[in-house]
Every structure is written in structure tokens, then in C-alpha cells.
Simulated scan of single mutants.
Amino acid sequence: MIMYGLKTCDTCRKALKSLPEAQFVDVRAEGVPGDVLNSAYEALGDALLNTRSTTWRGLDEATRARPPLDLLADHPTLMKRPLIDVDGRFYLGWGKDVQAQLLG
């Protein structure tokens, strides 16, 4: 299990505390591998892009119009988080639905 997020994100910290076996990858420091990003986007679609983030609000309209995968490659903090990869199956966020699936 690999969790992609930000070490400063409260939601990511809560998820990591509940999933201590997860390998944590800080997207600001390490980024998200292109193949993982492509697979996650195929599975989750536009939900992967956090349009409520501070980073999003700081982008101009021309930049926002770029393809989502290009935006996420250039600005990994635009990814909704945490993104949790369990053997190729992706979970996004740390809501009750994700917790129920991962914690049982």
C-alpha cells in the first residue's frame, strides 16, 4: 500500500496514522510517478484534480484549461489527497467510505 500526499496535510496524517503499514510518498518532495498518475486518472477521472485548493486558485485561466494530467505533473499539490494505491486499486481522500473499505 502506497499513500501519496503531503506531510503537512492534516487529512494525510490522519490516514497515515490509521494505516501505519502504508508507505508514504510526499508529492511535493518526490512527485507522483507518471504511470501511477495515468492509472489513477483512468480510475478516478477529474476527481483526482482538487479545484478547491489554494494552488488551483492561484492559476490563471489559460493554465487551468490545460489537460489535467499535465497540470498534475507540473503542480503535484493540485492532486486531491491522499491518493492511496492498494495493488493497483486507487482510493481518493479519507472519507468514511474510504475508511470503511480500507479498515473494514
Rank of each mutant, 00 (worst) to 15 (best):
G31L: 07
V32G: 08
V32Y: 08
G34I: 15
G34L: 14
D35W: 04
L37T: 01
N38D: 15
N38W: 13
N38M: 15
N38V: 13
S39L: 15
S39A: 15
S39D: 12
S39W: 06
A40W: 00
Y41T: 07
E42P: 02
E42A: 14
E42Y: 13
L44I: 12
L44Y: 08
L44C: 04
G45R: 13
G45P: 00
G45Q: 05
A47T: 14
A47F: 14
L48C: 06
L49Y: 06
L49E: 06
N50F: 09
N50G: 04
T51P: 08
R52W: 08
S53I: 01
S53T: 03
S53H: 11
T54W: 06
T54V: 11
T54A: 15
T55K: 09
T55W: 06
W56E: 04
W56A: 01
W56H: 04
R57K: 10
R57F: 01
R57P: 01
G58R: 13
G58L: 06
L59C: 01
D60N: 09
D60T: 00
D60E: 13
D60M: 02
D60H: 01
E61C: 00
A62R: 00
T63K: 10
T63S: 05
R64P: 01
R64M: 03
R64V: 10
A65S: 13
R66A: 15
R66N: 12
P67L: 15
P68I: 03
P68S: 10
L69C: 12
L69H: 13
L69Y: 01
D70N: 05
L71G: 03
L72F: 00
L72M: 07
A73Q: 14
D74E: 13
P76W: 15
P76D: 15
T77A: 15
T77Y: 13
T77W: 14
T77N: 14
L78P: 02
M79S: 10
M79D: 07
R81S: 02
R81A: 00
L83C: 05
L83R: 01
I84M: 05
I84N: 03
D85E: 07
D85G: 05
D85C: 12
V86F: 13
R89E: 10
R89S: 04
R89G: 02
F90H: 07
F90A: 02
F90E: 00
F90Y: 13
Y91M: 04
Y91G: 11
L92I: 03
L92C: 01
L92F: 12
L92V: 08
G93V: 03
G93L: 11
W94D: 10
W94Y: 08
G95C: 08
K96R: 14
